[in-house]
Design a binder for these strands. Sequence first.
RNA 1: GCGAUCGUAGCUCAGUUGGUUAGAGCAUCUGGUUGUGGUCCAGAGGGUCGUGGGUUCAAAUCCCAUCGAUCGCCCCA
Length: 447
Amino acid sequence: MAEPQFRTPKGTHDVLPEDHQYMTYIKKAVRHRARQAGYKRIDPPIFENRAIFERGIGEHTDIVEKELFIVSGKQRTEESESDVQFALRPEITAGICRSYIEHGMHLLPQPVELYAIGQCFRYDRPQKGRYRQFHQVDLELIGLKDPSLDAQLIHVCMNIFADLRIADRLTLQLNNIGNAENRRAFLVALKDFFIGKERHLPELDRKRLQTNPLRLLDSKEEDTRILLKSAPTLDQFIDDDSKQYHATLVEYLDELGVKHTANPSLVRGLDYYGQTVFEFWDSSSGAQNAVGGGGRYDGLIELLGGQPTPGVGVAMGVERMIWHMKQAGVTVPNKDHVDVFVAQLGPDAKKMCLTLIAKLREKGVHTIGALGEASLKSQMRLADKFGAKFTLLLGQMEVKEGKIILRDMAAGKQKSIKFENAVEEVLKLLGSENLDTYTLRDHFDED
RNA sequence: GCGAUCGUAGCUCAGUUGGUUAGAGCAUCUGGUUGUGGUCCAGAGGGUCGUGGGUUCAAAUCCCAUCGAUCGCCCCA
């Protein structure tokens, strides 16, 4: 392929009309399920003060350490001007929590249920299902702590996956990583255990031991795994409350009929999680790319400067859901068809077609017209390529006689009718149920 | 961020051990006489072979770099 002058930046892509069908479909499913469960839509900004992410997600996580898109800006006060650094959001949870604090949402009835759909950015090396700009669906339940909330949140996700017909391709991996105190005690023990054994660790894991030891647990390095077998395990440090919490969650999930797999080594790459953590994995290919993941983050709001407030949330990757839908052969309904093609010959006809097309559209008929100077043959070819059900043909003869030709494309038959009856005739043939009319009420949150 | 593979028209690809003006199918456009589609026939447009260097009498074919995509690692959406 010859190099075009410009192309999309690395790791980004155009969402072409074909993919938009999927995107719209997914958004619809999410809105529907979220609304049923009482969630309200929110849209925090695409970029925020970078400290929000650094503090919330954790400074030693990959996301913050190497995947943050930094945006520089200037901040002016009366006296001086200083640099500020923002970051493109790598996920949506931190922004929503910031918003919860900023708008005093703790005064609302709790829990506050919020959801968002939008772009996120991560400066990572692209791969299939991993892009620098991608879309996430995000659901959050803030202000109340109870296993029933965790269970319901997961259940909503399962409903969404079921709606998209990819539920059977995913397995829910579940774990409880205890409270902050438990993890602190565990990490101390873990570090103690590795004292004197560092040399046996691969370079990467040696570094992780210092910066983010919890991540050692799901290391895939052979040497590390062997050592881990005799190392202390997290569940030895998890307190009874957490265990009880988890047992209840499992009980609730079973009650809801949500299948899950216990995964003691599941930890998450974001520091703010505690207690419940979960991920939706591709059943066929093992871990690979998670389609979604989430968990409880009871310390996050306090970390961002709010009152101690519990919360639980989930994020799902839209591109990865689309990938699964395509793999599963799921097709989505598509409204981009053409009902009527208007062909025209001569300046008078052309002019009359303008209002004819406008009237048809106003009635909810998908109408396009070749308003160029192309030959009738070319216009008919176009009508065919667009898959128009009917073609209206207005030539000079018809203009003189006050008529118009109505052709049924599939049947290959046509008749001459009065020009003023054209709209009415088309409406009758299409049937009112096939008209694309809308009211503002239906349209209102289509995006 | 690390390792590996790949990169030829809009799309899918061919292009023999480096050798004359780089090909096919699909797609696009225009025709096949007076105003009509889907099949058929004919023709046209479209590529400085991702980009930049180098080796050679000669490179899409070899070497280097770079960009991009893909795969594994890492990580997660």
